[in-house]
Design a protein around this nucleic acid. Structure first.
Lengths: 232, 232
DNA sequence: ATTACTACTTACCGAGTAG
DNA sequence: TCTACTCGGTAAGTAGTAA
């Protein structure tokens, strides 16, 4: 589970608890002085003293304060706090990234998408690298909000799935990159970005095995939601 | 490595960074409002605003603030902070517990240690569970400091390696528990505690495969340092 | 809606110190 | 030495508000 409730208490005492754990107070009673802890945490001896009193009051540590120093042991409850943070951090680092959501409005291009998509060297790579034979044509989406444009910029920076350029007798076709995507929560497809040339940054083009306009019943002006997968 | 340097900065901003990471800002630019973050962290919108400005200044996040909201991405440096805390926590939870150190002063008992240790049912269990055949005799240590007595109490609470009691024709021998230990940093041995009966809480008894007094050159009054292993 | 400034308040920290 | 109290200054958090 992901959901770590971040209370004020946790924010205040987490690192004190951490230092105690580092000193072995999870496993056994450790002896230390408030001055020592203060140096470790870059705080004053007095502040640590207050912290320890509070930590004991909320039941995260058990403690005996003597003239010789403080004997401290982290309780099960305190240990649980550390475990929670650890689990939450591990979860964040191990989960797979959530997709980028981009929304845009359907509009008709000049029909040149169909031409490019059907060039055989491109098509072969789409099949091989994306896992589908694209419908001859692209779905053009106009991005309007600041958010969507920012997300599209994000894609420009990413590596994605690279489709190499090539040349035929007449001209050169530039390299392109793709991101697998899901359209309107249902249809598999891919967002496709020209690499070198400077397309309009407020537009994205989507290819898919099916004819998206038909299968999703889309008309110009309809809003479409695209989930763009950054990996896989 | 264990050593996490806990700076003020880390203490101040760790949980903000955590929440951002939870929202996916490690992998992509995320959009959010200061108000939203404020609720997550139980702070005011204004405070979050200041935090984000600071986080950007120290280079832990990159950010674009617009009327629509804030676009935030954690930088490599920010990611490193999270990784450090994660690694430190994982280390603490995965390392094997460090031994308890108890120091005491050698004194002569009444010699009854030798009698108990050589009772065959005890001896068989020592060999089986501790991995050595104990020298017939115990090394008695008197604990003086508050610290050492506290540590001995700690042992009383622990489970340790249990040696079962038994009866012969004449009497009953109670159960005992042991902790593997190292004496004066060199000699293998075990601390031995009677389970039910109430021994003097300021004394520990050590058994070992060798005659510790001889091999360590100990006389009454010498100080001895015992590392007590809690597991294994 | 937002962000983030200024002004204000508060609660927190640490110096001094007792036990 | 230690811990932990009182207390005053101030840094940190928030309310109001502009953009």
């Amino acid at each position: 589970m992901n959901n770590l409730k971040i209370t004020k208490t946790l924010q205040d005492y987490f690192f004190v608890l951490y230092v105690l754990a580092e000193l072995g107070a999870r496993e056994k009673t450790v002896k230390l002085s408030t001055k020592f802890l203060a140096e470790k945490l870059d705080l004053s001896q007095q502040t640590i003293s207050r912290y320890l009193i509070s930590l004991e009051r909320i039941g995260w540590i058990r403690r005996t304060a003597t003239r010789e120093g403080s004997f401290i042991r982290i309780t099960d409850l305190g240990d649980l706090q550390l475990r929670k943070v650890r689990a939450a951090l591990n979860f964040i680092f191990e989960r797979k990234p959530s997709p980028i959501i981009i929304e845009g409005t359907v509009f008709s291009g000049l029909g040149e998408g169909a031409y490019y998509v059907t060039r055989e060297p491109y098509r072969k790579q789409f099949i091989e690298k994306l896992g589908f034979d694209p419908y001859p044509g692209t779905l053009n989406l106009k991005l309007t909000s600041e958010y969507d444009i920012q997300m599209r910029r994000e894609l420009e920076v990413r590596s994605g799935i690279e489709i190499h350029g090539f040349s035929d007798a007449n001209r050169t076709y530039g390299p392109v990159k793709c991101f697998l995507a899901r359209v309107n929560g249902k249809e598999k497809g891919a967002v496709i970005l020209a690499l070198r040339t400077h397309y309009d940054s407020s537009v994205i083009e989507v290819i898919a095995p099916k004819h998206l306009r038909n299968v999703l019943g889309l008309k110009d002006g309809n809003r479409v939601r695209v989930e763009v997968f950054l990996e896989g």
